[in-house]
């Protein structure tokens, strides 16, 4: 490894210590600027509006007399205001459907572009790759027009169908498939396996790590997606967690209730991040290096 080869000369003197201390102070200070907002959000969501207004800056859950106490009323109100049951269900339907459809359909197309031979393959691939240059923001208005034309606005289909595939993920998966040893496939073909069988049973398991990464990122992206659901669905029964939280803040609830809503909506993904950190960070690197 390159990393282990290089070492600073191990001098332990005042200058080095001072330098190190300085670095730690800067980094810890920066770290606090990341932790304090979240901590403040969590604590404030556990206090009453009155208590919040009657004390100055504090990071402790104090009530208006200055005693420690936890208040869960904000969460109760946020649950009702978010319409949490229905909204959670919608979010799960959209995220799960999108994740599985994405994984299946993208890998199908990616495999074809990597391994199968058919007429105009490269031309089609190039055209589709070109569409990657059209950013999502540009597509918002056109996509709204087509969904309205198809009559799928104000339904969960409007949140699933336009995102059911991703050219970018196809591109990443194709790279993976290209790296798979051809010999294994050849062997399977000689044994009489058809292309679909080879794709499903032989090649797909080999790129499982990539599939996991893409699955997680697709799920998280759909979970947090805001602008599109906001534009295309008006019906309150079709809101997702993100749009419902935006509605909560748009109708001007108390600061403490809004923060409780933000905690409810953001906590699951932050917890998932801590559990699946390896995959998420790996996904980021993959995307940045190849993209």
């Amino acid at each position: 490894m390159k990393k282990t080869k290089f070492r600073f000369p191990a001098r332990i003197n005042g200058a080095t210590v001072a330098k190190k201390t300085f670095i730690y102070v800067v980094l810890i200070g920066l770290c606090l600027s990341f932790i304090i907002p979240y901590f403040w959000m969590l604590i404030t969501s556990l206090r009453t509006e009155l208590a919040y207004n009657s004390t100055g800056f504090t990071l402790l859950p104090l009530d208006e007399q200055g005693h420690l106490s936890l208040f869960f009323g904000n969460y109760k109100e946020a649950f009702t205001a978010l319409n949490l049951g229905q909204v959670l269900l919608n979010t799960l339907i959209v995220c799960v459907a999108n994740t599985f459809l994405n994984l299946f359909l993208n890998s199908l197309a990616a495999y074809a572009f990597a391994r199968l031979k058919f007429f105009a393959k490269n031309t089609i691939f190039k055209i589709i790759l070109f569409s990657m240059m059209v950013p999502g923001t540009v597509m918002l208005v056109p996509n709204f027009l087509i969904c309205d034309y198809l009559g799928i606005t104000d339904s969960l289909f409007a949140l699933i169908l336009p995102f059911v595939m991703s050219v970018y993920n196809i591109f990443l998966l194709r790279q993976q498939f290209l790296g798979v040893d051809k010999g294994i496939e050849e062997a399977a073909r000689i044994e009489g396996a058809g292309p679909f069988r080879i794709y499903l049973r032989i090649v797909l398991p080999l790129v499982k790590p990539m599939m996991v990464v893409l699955g997680i990122t697709t799920f998280m992206w759909n979970y947090g997606n805001y602008l599109w659901p906001y534009i295309v669905n008006v019906d309150p029964n079709l809101r997702t967690l993100a749009t419902s939280l935006a509605e909560l803040t748009g109708s001007g609830y108390d600061l403490t209730v809004q923060l409780a809503g933000a905690v409810i909506v953001s906590a699951p993904m932050i917890i998932v991040f801590f559990i699946l950190q390896k995959y998420i960070v790996g996904g980021t690197m993959e995307g940045a290096v190849k993209g």
């Binding site: 009559g151 104000d154 509605e247 109708s251």
Partner: peptide, 16 residues
């Protein structure tokens, strides 16, 4: 929500 109301309504009016 009040902040989104007018635009939601106009979307509804133009929607098929």
């Amino acid at each position: 929500a009040k902040d989104n109301y007018n635009s939601a309504i106009s979307t509804k009016f133009t929607s098929k």
